[in-house]
C-alpha cells in the first residue's frame, strides 16, 4: 500500500483524501461523496471504539456465540 496507517489516525482530511486515493485505485468510478461518507462513518466508529476503557482487555479473546459461562464483569 505504500503508506502506513494506524487505526487511531483514521480521521480528518488526510484520512479522507488517502481513502479516496486508495479507493479510486480499485474503483476508478467511485463517487467521491460516497467515499467521503464512508471515511466519515468508519472514523466515527473508530472514535467510539477508541473511547472504550481498555484496561480490562489484555488480549484478544475468542468470541463465543454462547452467553459467558463465567461470572460477568
Amino acid at each position: 500500500m505504500g503508506k502506513e496507517e494506524d487505526a487511531r489516525g483514521m480521521s480528518g482530511p488526510d484520512w479522507a483524501m488517502d481513502l479516496l486515493w486508495r479507493t479510486r485505485q480499485i474503483d476508478p468510478a467511485g463517487d467521491e461523496g460516497a467515499i467521503r461518507r464512508y471515511a466519515e462513518e468508519i472514523a466515527e466508529a473508530q472514535t467510539v471504539l477508541s473511547e472504550l476503557r481498555r484496561d480490562d482487555v489484555t488480549e484478544i479473546p475468542l468470541f463465543s456465540a454462547s452467553w459467558p459461562e463465567h461470572s460477568p464483569r
Binding site: 494506524d6 487505526a7 483514521m10 486508495r22 479507493t23 463517487d31 471504539l49 484478544i60 479473546p61 475468542l62
Partner: peptide, 25 residues
C-alpha cells in the same frame, strides 16, 4: 458495493483487530 469493497480494503488491520478484541468484552 464497489465503494464499500474498495474502501474497505484500506481499513487498517489494527482497526479490525481492535473491533474483534472488544467483542467479547
Amino acid at each position: 458495493l464497489r465503494v464499500r469493497v474498495a474502501a474497505g480494503r484500506s481499513i487498517p488491520a489494527t482497526a479490525y483487530l481492535d473491533a474483534i478484541g472488544v467483542r467479547s468484552r
